[in-house]
């Protein structure tokens, strides 16, 4: 149950009254988290942005159905997940490019540059880019439910109960899904786990609401 003073719920209640400014604030707060979530499943930046935009539009259109008893992000991620699943089904029907393979050399790759280039060698950057790519590939190749669970799990503010609601399964089943996903990832990323430390760059998987 959402805290009655939960800022997201308060904003959504104002949005229900038709206040677009309140909804825009919600978009700004959660846009990065939603696009990250979708991008893990649809590694095509343009497509992921379209889906994220659609998720927010759907949330606006369905705002009358939102109940403040539910956590806003759970509701939003459920919409985002459904849209992503539809897109994946459409892709599999049309036999498009493999969804498991991130688009090589796309704008996303070029945008993944590191801020602090001066302090790191080109080799370090290259290695880090390779590791990120391998991790992203390993996550993308998980079954959809496991991928969704793992993506949501990285946001500390999303509880296991909320993840269970997005997945539409029990709490114990959710924990089991996360466990299986981590086991698979450990197996696939074994060489990178053995090489040890990565840097201490701050976590960037899910941005905290501003």
């Amino acid at each position: 149950m959402a805290d009655p003073l939960d800022p997201d719920a308060a904003l959504m209640l104002r949005a229900k009254q038709g206040e677009r400014g309140a909804f825009e604030e919600l978009v700004i707060r959660h846009q990065q988290a939603v696009i990250n979530f979708i991008y893990r499943s649809v590694p095509d930046l343009a497509e992921a942005e379209d889906l994220a935009q659609n998720a927010f539009v759907q949330a606006w259109k369905a705002r009358q159905r939102y109940q403040p008893s539910a956590k806003f992000t759970t509701w939003l991620f459920t919409i985002a997940r459904n849209l992503t699943l539809n897109e994946l089904r459409r892709r599999s029907r049309h036999d498009l490019d493999s969804i498991d393979a991130p688009v090589a050399g796309d704008e996303a790759q070029s945008a993944r540059q590191f801020e602090d280039v001066g302090s790191q060698s080109a080799a370090d950057n290259l290695l880090r880019t390779e590791i990120e790519q391998r991790v992203a590939e390993a996550v993308a190749s998980l079954p959809e439910t496991q991928r969704t669970a793992i993506s949501l799990c990285q946001d500390e503010e999303t509880s296991y109960e909320d993840i269970a609601k997005v997945l539409g399964c029990s709490l114990s089943a959710t924990k089991s899904i996360i466990f299986r996903a981590r086991e698979t990832l450990k197996e696939r990323l074994k060489p990178y786990l053995q090489t040890g430390e990565w840097d201490n760059r701050p976590s960037a998987t899910f941005s905290k609401p501003r």
């Binding site: 696009i35 992921a48 990120e132 992203a136 990323l189 990178y192 786990l193 040890g196 990565w198 998987t205």
Partner: peptide, 14 residues
């Protein structure tokens, strides 16, 4: 180590 790898994944460009 796995948690470190997962949490270091960069944000999707927005």
């Amino acid at each position: 180590a796995l948690t470190r790898l997962l949490t270091r994944l960069p944000d999707a460009p927005l």
